[in-house]
Simulated scan of single mutants.
Amino acid sequence: MKCINCHSIDIGKIGPRQYFCWNCCIEMSFAGDKLDVYQVEADGSVSSLNDLFFEEEPLQPQETEIEIYSDGR
Rank of each mutant, 00 (worst) to 15 (best):
N5K: 15
C6V: 04
C6W: 03
H7E: 15
H7P: 00
H7V: 05
H7F: 14
I9R: 07
D10V: 06
I11F: 02
I11K: 01
G12E: 15
G12Y: 12
K13D: 09
K13T: 15
G15V: 03
G15W: 03
P16Y: 12
P16I: 13
P16S: 13
R17A: 11
Q18N: 08
F20L: 13
C21I: 01
W22I: 07
W22Y: 15
C24I: 01
S29D: 12
F30G: 05
F30I: 11
G32I: 05
G32T: 05
D33H: 11
D33R: 13
D33W: 05
D33F: 07
D33I: 07
K34T: 14
L35T: 15
L35M: 15
D36P: 00
D36S: 14
V37R: 02
V37P: 00
Y38G: 03
Y38V: 01
Y38S: 07
Y38D: 06
Y38K: 09
Q39M: 09
Q39A: 14
V40E: 04
D43I: 07
D43P: 08
V46M: 13
S47D: 11
S48Y: 01
L49F: 01
D51S: 13
D51G: 04
L52W: 09
F54T: 01
E56V: 08
E57I: 06
L59S: 14
P61R: 12
P61V: 13
P61G: 09
E63T: 11
T64F: 07
E65T: 08
E65V: 10
E65Q: 08
I66Y: 09
E67Q: 12
I68N: 12
D71Q: 11
D71G: 07
D71R: 12
G72W: 04
R73D: 11
